[in-house]
Write a protein that binds this DNA or RNA. Structure first.
Lengths: 146, 146
DNA sequence: GTGCAACCTCAAGCTAAGTTGAGGTCAAGC
DNA sequence: GCTTGACCTCAACTTAGCTTGAGGTTGCAC
């Protein structure tokens, strides 16, 4: 009479395409919780597949694990996100992604001006702006090119 | 008769807004070279200010130090980039930045569809695509939101 | 009742782009 | 000639998101 709602870590890994070690890591970070068998093996709820998929989508949208944990923690009783939760969260992601596109577009325009003048001037180049860089400290990479 | 083309590390740091430790780090990575005084202190060429500014702009465009080193190494005799070099390189950066914007725009469109359907489905959601994720392995974060 | 794959923990390692600290030397102004 | 700030090296630490390895246990199938 094993509850078939309970799945071992390997199954969760295969169903989500995430490594077993990554799932243990997510659990250690508090993004997932599990029950244990008598033999100390993890058993996850089937709904954790959806929870992991949420983590993956949020990651793809650029959120860090800490931010994702914060989103998940906002949900009452730490439940798996419903459609409404997802819509609320994804709308705020949409705003963030829009800002990222704006930043990139602005940078591209500046780059175009630079290609025109070829200056690379510390004084005049808009791309090279000391104050900007100082202000951006700790913000991590501004973008990652493929 | 000290050559006034030669500047100490602190001056290079102040002129570029980069920390002294970062300049030493760049040198250790091969992005810069220096001469030494009798007392073992670094002396940089004045033109290294431009070289550092090149590093900074390239970083702002999302290149990693290894990629920047590769760009700099392509230049004959490892010289400081001229306007022509800069234009050639920045045009290729422009292509990369365009691709990044396209990727973000595509993701935003998918997100819009998701907001519409609220699915978060492993089978159907375009945002959650296992093959995509597998293929993207080792590419690092796809974007970083502010 | 045994063999073996899947599971467990804990520690260490990885990449990127540096920073921080300890302990020591150099050079320039007064 | 001495003080002081700028410089030197080398090692260890930082954050994020994991992976890898060692050494040991569980659980299911045959």
């Amino acid at each position: 009479m094993g509850n078939d709602q309970l799945i071992p870590i390997g199954t969760l890994a295969r169903r989500t395409g995430v490594a077993v070690s990554a799932i243990r890591f997510y659990e250690s970070k508090g993004l997932l919780t599990s029950l244990r068998t008598g033999g100390n093996q993890r058993r996850f709820l089937r709904s954790d597949i959806r929870r992991v998929s949420f983590i993956l989508v949020a990651q793809k949208l650029g959120l860090g694990l800490a931010e994702i944990e914060a989103e998940l923690a906002q949900l009452p009783q730490g439940r798996t996100p419903t459609i409404n939760d997802w819509q609320r969260i994804s709308r705020s992601m949409r705003v963030a992604i829009d800002e990222k596109i704006k930043l990139l577009t602005r940078t591209r325009n500046q780059l175009d001006q630079c290609i025109g003048c070829g200056c690379l001037s510390l004084q005049k180049c808009q791309l090279y702006n000391k104050e900007d860089r100082m202000a951006a400290r700790g913000a991590g990479p501004q973008l990652v090119l493929g």
